[in-house]
Design a protein around this nucleic acid. Sequence first.
DNA 1: TTGTAGGCGTTATCAT
DNA 2: ATGATAACGCCTACAA
Lengths: 330, 330
Amino acid sequence: MMDVARTAGVSPSTVSLYLRRPEAVSPAAGQEIAQAIEALGYVPNLVAGGLAAAGSRVVSVIVPSIRNAFFAETVAAMQTELARDGLQVMLGHSEYSDTDEEALIRTALAWAPAAIVLTGLEHSKGARKLLAAGGTPVVEMWELGEQAPIDMAVGFSHTAVGATAARHFAQQGKRHFAFLGARLAQDRRAAARAEGFVAEARRLGLPEPPVLNHPAPATAEAGAQLLGRVQASLPGLEAVACSNDLIALGVLFECQRRGIAVPADLAVIGFGDLSFSSTSNPPLTTIRPSGDLIGREVARLIHACVHGTRPPPGACIVDTGHLLVERKSG
Amino acid sequence: MMDVARTAGVSPSTVSLYLRRPEAVSPAAGQEIAQAIEALGYVPNLVAGGLAAAGSRVVSVIVPSIRNAFFAETVAAMQTELARDGLQVMLGHSEYSDTDEEALIRTALAWAPAAIVLTGLEHSKGARKLLAAGGTPVVEMWELGEQAPIDMAVGFSHTAVGATAARHFAQQGKRHFAFLGARLAQDRRAAARAEGFVAEARRLGLPEPPVLNHPAPATAEAGAQLLGRVQASLPGLEAVACSNDLIALGVLFECQRRGIAVPADLAVIGFGDLSFSSTSNPPLTTIRPSGDLIGREVARLIHACVHGTRPPPGACIVDTGHLLVERKSG
DNA sequence: TTGTAGGCGTTATCAT
DNA sequence: ATGATAACGCCTACAA
């Protein structure tokens, strides 16, 4: 920066000022500085800037898995919005482990981020303490429920999603359901969907739906295997709710192989409304969580915090809801 | 840090030293310091550390789209490896725009990253200048070809992938091919696969395969539409190569709807070996690029740079190759 | 509008 | 093994 100042014939602080508020500097000086920057290929050092300003323009985002299309969607949307404020996304993935998450939070905090974004409402004790100590704004996303958020939250109720699926099947006159999930022990939001599904079926006076769990990540392969298990053990089954569209996709394929007509013999509902769900055969009935909306809302909240216009507590919890997308599979 | 030093009864330098090389400090002092850190909930400020050390422990990764499962896979694998070295990933996505990429590179450089990871070998003039100026290690990934990399590279030849697909079809006795792609104007690697496919068909003395392009991102929906176009215009068609497994998935579904037998009436080959490809009906023949391997190799290169043991130029270009995964679709 | 001075929380270099 | 000291590159008063 000193080089720029020297070649522009001004002082370093003028350059600094120009960089942050170009209109606060005289047009003539501005020209000189712009030229010097161009000529020298100067790139401001944000590390130094962050240190001096006691707060960097970084937003730390921690998701369970970036491979998961849901979170990829959200992160992408969020990044696009955040970039407008000159905010950079630092990414971490916890692989659904609370202890890993805590370590990531610790590292994140070390960067004095403008905000920190977490997935879900459940975190380790240590994580809560770390977050409570600093004045860093924290947004929890992709989940809303009984539990009060640490600070702000954007998401929806997963038990409500499960209930929607159960009600939908009931409306179609189905009575014997099952829930197909993967890694339910790790993925608490999927578990909440299962719970909501079962609870709603019970409330409607229907037979209690069994919950089948696949120990590996949610893939089409898992779905195909789960359908095999379900067929072997539950003869009168009429409908299955899947914790993820990929599982539903596997179910669809396995049904084709076994000659099970969907939805006549077996109704199928997914979750996620992934890109292939409208194109499958039959098209997949699913529940859309609006991952991109979540990303945008999180960004909006952070934008407000950064600009010192933090919304009132009530507006810091935003419910993005969910949407039943009825197609042909159930 | 001064607080920690005070409560531990040592000087700040000793604390700093302990944090970086615990074995260089006496066990007694180490104990005191550890306790003080624990008691105060001290989190070191990496921004200040980065400034003082003139180089942060951040790796900037710029991909075209994080929604794309290929890159998500690579980023996830890379992050896992990098985390072991205490390196944080800063993510950016260019949406396949060179000018956006240049802006992202500028921001990335402003963080004085330990390394910067780019996708592909093609970048704007400005981007090259920025990168050439600084001494930041740069790794280009997911592509290898005629073009020399800026610094290091990990990837494979996309024209070779296209050629593999064409040879495979030829071996099956097919003669009339087509290539189905999406956003070929933006996605140069997909375009290279198309090119390799066409060139190899020509080399084998087969009719020149038409290349069909879908203007929107590669999805199953795009695949279904492309199959429709292909059926309408190319009556004698025997095989289609898709630029992405999602497109192939859409083709598979559309074939089911139209009663086209795969592979008897039409052979289909994809690219990516995504999670659903082994489970589809029929299972998808595809080409595996090993996105996770790319991520790990990139991390290995960066690890070496960070440790001052930069491999010789020859070892800085690693070809991860590609693998034909033969299944039932073609 | 522009320049000056002090400090942000570390690390690195040198003594001790 | 430990501690004093000087950067690191910028920002934020404040003064001119």
